[in-house]
Amino acid sequence: MDDLSLSLLDICMNSAEADASTVKASIMTYPDDHKLEMTVEDDGVGMENDVAEKATDPFYTQRPSRKVGLGLPLLKHAATNTGGDFHIRTRPGKGTIVRAVFHMDHVDMPNLGDLASSVLTFVLHPKTNDFTFTYGDVKNTFVFDLNEILRIIDKDDLSNGSIRRYIYDMLQEGINMKEGENHEDIEGIKTVTR
């Protein structure tokens, strides 16, 4: 994958394929430790332990249902290349948590890429409803909650480009939020100042 935003979309797609009804994605940075943590948590079908162990083996997949493909091994490789970590926690019938930790100051640290585009693309997926995307650091956290958006618009409204652009801009605004800005009064865009 060229950048982290594509990995994020890919892992979220795994959740959709695993029939998750709730997907929680987050990218958090910890500047003091020079670390970035990407997490995707779902309540999908999950995996048996032996499957989860093989899930990061690039030569393993569960065809034809293809619950696991090349995505997890690629993400693991990207994270460990920076001296980071990679974990999967999963239980059959309960769901899966994928967590990748990157060392941001490592030469092999991938670019973030267009996170707003990945989030919007996942929002467009027909199965995506209960979805949150959290982005931030220890001081400011931006939460994009699709539930809030879907109280206002229907999925069908997303066929309109100006609606899509508005949501894209919303995401960009949250992702590029500067320290000290406060969006707390707006539902759907929440910031938590710690």
Binding site: L6, L9, D10, M13, G69, L74
Partner: peptide
Amino acid sequence: GMATCGIAAGAREVVRRFME
């Protein structure tokens, strides 16, 4: 196609262009 292979090859931008 939006599996890993599609995403890595640029499917995200293709979806956007089709919709536009």
